[in-house]
């Protein structure tokens, strides 16, 4: 493997943590995205309002502010509340958990739109036909909606993932030793900042390119049995 003045291994470990945070956040983003889409499409006004507020606020505020707010803001808020109630409380969030939760919740808002769009892309007639056959909600979801939603939605989560993995670079501000701080330490020690940040950028580029290739494969797979646009 590349050595990079002996810091190659450290960068590599940073990359592993970056990918771990990315995967955890992606799982949370898909979960909250499905939940959000369900809320946005629900018949309950409260559900729509909640999901709408969630996506509006998250998409209107920079990620960095949200990360700082969750990592530094939430613990102090709880401490202040406890202090007012007469308790002395000290909370320290684990940076890994805070990073995963923040990035996951932010990209959950984007995933919400993706899943909502995919659900709406299913022709209404098919839902009606499924009802006419006497399928219940769960059976219909499993047999008709999800298999097709998957196909419509696939480019979406793929894109969410690629944006999300880039956003993980931001959680270096909350002292999690992922790729960025590793590169930073190496850059300071060797006084070769360009070399190391460029190496880090190539790592991210590598993740993006590999993800693009996998996404292409998946799309081809999910489109099997359907006619392509070209006929």
């Amino acid at each position: 493997m590349l050595d990079l003045h002996g810091y190659g291994r450290m960068l590599w470990q940073g990359l592993e943590l970056t990918i771990l945070v990315g995967l955890g956040a992606m799982a949370l983003a898909v979960a909250s995205g499905l939940l959000g889409a369900w809320g946005k499409l629900s018949h309950h006004r409260a559900g729509r309002w909640l999901a709408g507020t969630y996506t509006t606020v998250i998409r209107g505020v920079p990620e960095l502010i949200l990360i700082l707010l969750i990592y530094y803001g939430v613990p102090t808020f709880i401490q202040d509340l406890a202090a007012r109630a007469g308790h002395d409380l000290r909370i320290d969030l684990n940076p890994f958990v805070a990073g995963v939760v923040t990035i996951g919740l932010i990209y959950g808002a984007f995933a919400t739109e993706v899943f909502r769009g995919a659900f709406l892309a299913i022709p209404r007639g098919q839902i009606e036909a499924a009802r006419a056959f006497g399928m219940g909600r769960v059976v219909m979801l499993r047999r008709i909606v999800l298999p097709q939603m998957w196909r419509f939605a696939l480019p979406g989560p793929g894109n969410v993932w690629m944006v999300l993995i880039k956003a993980t670079a931001l959680i270096s501000v909350i002292q999690l030793d992922e790729l960025m701080p590793s590169a930073d330490i190496a850059a300071r020690a060797t006084r070769l900042p360009f070399t190391f940040f460029f190496a880090a950028s190539l790592f991210y580029l590598g993740i993006t390119v590999v993800s693009m290739l996998i996404q292409g494969r998946f799309e081809a797979w999910s489109q099997r049995g359907t006619r392509s646009v070209q006929g």
């Binding site: 960025m180 900042p193 940040f197 993006t208």
Partner: peptide, 22 residues
């Protein structure tokens, strides 16, 4: 591909800190 495939933060560091190398 490079600018869209890498985080903006890395690009910022590359210019701000990286320029010191030159």
């Amino acid at each position: 591909l490079y600018f869209r495939g890498t985080p903006l933060l890395v690009q910022l560091f590359l210019v701000y800190y990286g320029s010191g190398q030159f």
